[in-house]
């Protein structure tokens, strides 16, 4: 246990510069806006007095690095400012919407993990056969398929045509779990397809490499059944690769969620960031980007630690 804590501590220390840089990027977004940030933040048709107020409130009359420090301190306290449009608290907005995004992302990751690994294993154990070619072709198609187009086709066929699933919206998982799952199924499937394709490809090539290695040949020569070789040695050896891959897919899922939430009218943080960017509601944009990048960095930390538990060699690195 102490070893794990030490490992977490070391990784956090290594992650610190990345977190600092990431927050700096989020803060700097406002500097990209042409014109005076105070005028931008005050919104359209603001009075001179309101602009001066905003300048004071956000410390925009201070040097850049001081502004960043003030912003970061506020963010650490959970104060991400207010929406320019509705003057709601940004952290409240995000807290209210984040569960909807996490539900479809986690759901998609579960689907993709199961289907992607199954396809990758099926292809890798039958290299050169028609099934392998079919799965590889399917993966190429999945990578190039626009997820929101797939989502539209799913809506047209499965929900409008067959009425199997509700068309749009979301339901709270805690109070109405069945409806929440039904609402999240099509969005999760649409999100999962790209991830399935990526996982199937990577699992296939990683497993082919392991199955071709010397020690697997030795195990086979010893007379171990091919099932035991695959499950006991092949998959265990790619488990670290697989976990790292799954961690990397979180980025792709959050990216995909932006469009998928728009298609299914899901009140999540993805659709929030898109509409806020359209409406020039910068505090909301910054807030969502900050929360998502912190989630991604923390997930990578968890993946690192789990990898170290799975494979002691990874802990040394």
């Amino acid at each position: 246990m102490g070893k794990i804590l030490r490992l977490v501590g070391r990784r956090l220390w290594q992650l610190l510069p990345i977190i600092v840089f990431a927050t700096f990027v989020v803060f700097s977004l406002l500097q990209l806006v042409p014109g005076d940030p105070a005028v931008v933040l005050a919104g359209d048709y603001a009075s001179e007095q309101r602009i001066a107020e905003i300048r004071q409130l956000y410390g925009l009359d201070q040097p850049f690095l001081v502004q960043y420090g003030v912003w970061l301190l506020h963010a650490l306290e959970g104060n991400l400012g207010r929406s320019l449009l509705t003057s709601e608290s940004v952290s409240q907005l995000i807290l209210y919407r984040l569960p909807n995004t996490l539900l479809i992302a986690v759901y998609a990751l579960v689907i993709a993990g199961l289907v992607g690994v199954a396809l990758g294993v099926a292809a890798a154990t039958r290299v050169g056969t028609r099934l392998d070619a079919f799965i590889t072709g399917l993966a190429s198609l999945g990578v190039a398929l626009p997820s929101f187009w797939l989502a539209m086709i799913l809506v047209a066929t499965l929900s409008l045509g067959l009425h199997w699933f509700p068309t749009t919206g979301a339901a709270p998982l805690l109070t109405d779990p069945w409806s929440a799952i039904m609402h999240a199924t099509l969005p999760a499937v649409a999100l999962a397809v790209g991830v399935i394709a990526e996982l199937a490809r990577q699992v296939r090539s990683a497993l082919i490499e392991v199955l071709n290695s010397q020690y697997i040949r030795t195990l086979r020569a010893k007379g171990l059944s091919s099932g035991a070789v695959l499950w006991k040695h092949g998959l265990r050896n790619i488990s670290v690769t697989l976990l790292t891959l799954l961690g990397l897919q979180v980025n792709r899922l959050f990216s995909g969620a932006v469009v998928i939430e728009a298609v299914f009218a899901i009140p999540g943080v993805g659709s929030l960031v898109a509409t806020s960017a359209l409406n020039k509601d910068f505090p909301v944009v910054q807030g969502v980007v900050l929360v998502l990048v912190v989630i991604v960095i923390l997930i990578n930390l968890v993946v690192d630690v789990l990898n170290a538990l799975l494979d002691p060699r990874a802990a040394e690195a």
Partner: peptide, 27 residues
């Protein structure tokens, strides 16, 4: 230093970062 900065940029969900930058630069 630059490599850590690159790591930080790669931690952002790509489309989300692109949307944020687009919103800032102008649609």
């Amino acid at each position: 230093v630059t490599s850590r900065f690159i790591d930080a940029l790669l931690s952002f969900p790509p489309i989300v970062l692109a949307i944020a930058v687009t919103g800032a630069l102008g649609i």
